[in-house]
């Protein structure tokens, strides 16, 4: 058992994957000598060399496009997009090529490429460094989209993503990079397309992923003080969704709130609410509510505490489900 941060857990997961499979490569901006701007790839180039940990030119489309070519040659590239807001130059390669080429080939080509994206706000950054673009990718068939919320999942999920034969967009909650947890390397991980109940409860279900899981756990603890039993499900897999886990929880509690940092409108919460309502219609005591970012571009950082759903806004939504 070791205690490590979420950033270090991904680092250790990457290291383990690289040790197990010589075809695993890391590529991105500043991932080599510097070890990445968040130090997630720290020390890997020193140990695995420049041909396996590749400092790339500053061009995101180039990173994904060449990763596709490397995958066609039998490699398993793990690409780092430095910040969420910088993924859009690569969106064409991700959406029109990475997601679609396996089908285009009638299954003859596989693209086991992982696109790592530090996501979300809360670090006081300038524009384009705090976004939550997951819904752009969950809307794209051919991609798997996952989000880790804690060091233990991060360690296992990055390795599962690398072993996966499908392309995976891997979201990392950047404001949680420094959160610590105890890791048992030998524990059997949950399959990475499954959600997980991270706090059991009876009265209402909170669905969250990535950075919002911690916020929701804090909200559940606060609600418990008021005598309300809140269940928190960490979705982990955003595409596909683990509807089994969601439905099991919501049928039990009868109430559901989805929380994410991304704007509520056309966000992943909309899909979850629709599916949950359809599957749990006769069990619901109230409509599925959503709490998240507003329909504004991400604000200047002095305002981000108003934009990001915090404990109080989550609890406000919980309260509203009891008002019906």
């Amino acid at each position: 058992m070791t205690t490590l941060t979420l950033a270090k857990a991904i680092n250790e997961g990457l290291r383990a994957a690289m040790e197990q499979d010589p075809k695993v490569l890391i590529m991105g901006e500043d991932v080599g000598k510097l070890g990445g701007v968040f130090r997630v790839t720290d020390g890997l180039q020193k140990d695995f060399g420049e041909s396996r940990v590749i400092d790339t030119p500053l061009a995101e489309s180039g990173i994904i496009g060449t990763a596709i070519g490397l995958a066609l040659r039998g490699y398993r590239p793990v690409c780092e997009i430095q910040f969420d807001g910088f993924v859009f130059p690569a969106a064409d390669q991700i959406i029109t090529q990475l997601a679609k080429m396996p089908l285009r080939s009638l299954g003859k080509l596989r693209l086991p490429v992982v696109v790592r994206i530090p996501c979300g706000g809360g670090i006081g950054a300038v524009e384009h460094h705090s976004e939550s673009p997951e819904a752009y990718f969950t809307h794209t068939a051919g991609l798997r989209v996952v989000a880790c919320s804690n060091p233990v999942d991060a360690f296992h999920m990055i390795q599962q993503a690398i072993r996966c034969e499908d392309p995976v967009v891997f979201f990392e909650p950047k404001r949680r990079y420094w959160e610590k947890a105890d890791l048992d390397r030998d524990a059997t991980p949950v399959p990475f397309d499954r959600g997980r109940v991270v706090r059991e409860g009876r009265d209402v279900t909170l669905l969250a992923y990535g950075p919002m899981v911690k916020t929701c756990l804090e909200a559940a603890a606060a609600a418990a003080d008021d005598g309300r039993s809140v269940e928190v499900v960490d979705l982990r897999s955003l595409s596909p969704l683990d509807m089994e886990a969601i439905v099991r929880s919501v049928r039990k509690t009868g109430r559901c709130v989805v929380a994410h940092e991304a704007p509520v409108f056309s966000g992943l919460g909309a899909e979850i609410a629709a599916r949950t309502t359809e599957a749990c219609f006769y069990h619901l005591e109230a409509p599925v509510l959503r709490v998240g970012g507003f329909s504004t571009p991400y604000p200047p950082s002095r305002l981000e505490e108003h934009y990001l759903p915090d404990l109080d806004r989550v609890l406000d939504a919980v309260d509203r489900t009891f008002a019906f």
């Binding site: 489309s61 496009g65 070519g69 066609l72 040659r73 029109t96 080509l109």
Partner: peptide
């Protein structure tokens, strides 16, 4: 594509140039 060492046709203009360079790096 592997049988012929001839990749699939790419319709979006120019995308395949990056795939080729990545392949060459492999």
């Amino acid at each position: 594509p592997a049988e012929h060492n001839f990749h699939l046709y790419t319709i979006v203009i120019g995308s395949q140039t990056l795939h080729a360079v990545g392949y060459a790096m492999g």
